Computed example of a mutant assay.
Amino acid sequence: MHSTEIEIRTGDRAVVHDLTRDAERFLADAPSGEGDGPSDGLLHVWVPHATAGLAVLETGAGSDDDLLAALDDLLPRDDRWRHRHGSAGHGRDHVLPALVPPYATIPVLGGRLALGTWQSICLVDTNVDNPTRRVRFSFLAG
Rank of each mutant, 00 (worst) to 15 (best):
H49S: 13
H90W: 03
R25M: 04
L57H: 13
D72R: 14
D40I: 00
R21W: 07
L27S: 06
G53R: 00
A61N: 13
T59W: 06
P101G: 09
T105Q: 06
P102Y: 02
H90R: 11
G86L: 08
D93S: 09
R77S: 11
H44Y: 04
L74I: 15
E24V: 14
V47P: 00
A52R: 01
R92A: 10
G35C: 02
D79H: 05
T51V: 00
V47M: 06
H44P: 00
L71F: 05
A69W: 06
S39L: 07
P48T: 03
A70L: 15
G53K: 03
G91F: 01
L19R: 02
G89P: 05
L68D: 13
P107D: 11
E58M: 10
V45M: 07
D66S: 12
D36I: 01
A61Q: 12
E34N: 14
L54P: 03
D72G: 10
V95L: 12
R25D: 15
H83V: 00
G62R: 02
S87W: 10
G91K: 06
G111W: 02
D64K: 08
R21I: 12
L109A: 11
H83M: 07
H85N: 13
G110W: 09
L113H: 07
L68V: 06
D29Y: 05
H49E: 10
L54T: 00
Y103W: 14
A104V: 08
L115C: 12
L43Y: 04
T105C: 13
G53M: 02
L43G: 08
D18F: 02
S87A: 13
R112D: 08
D18L: 05
S63D: 09
D18G: 09
A61T: 13
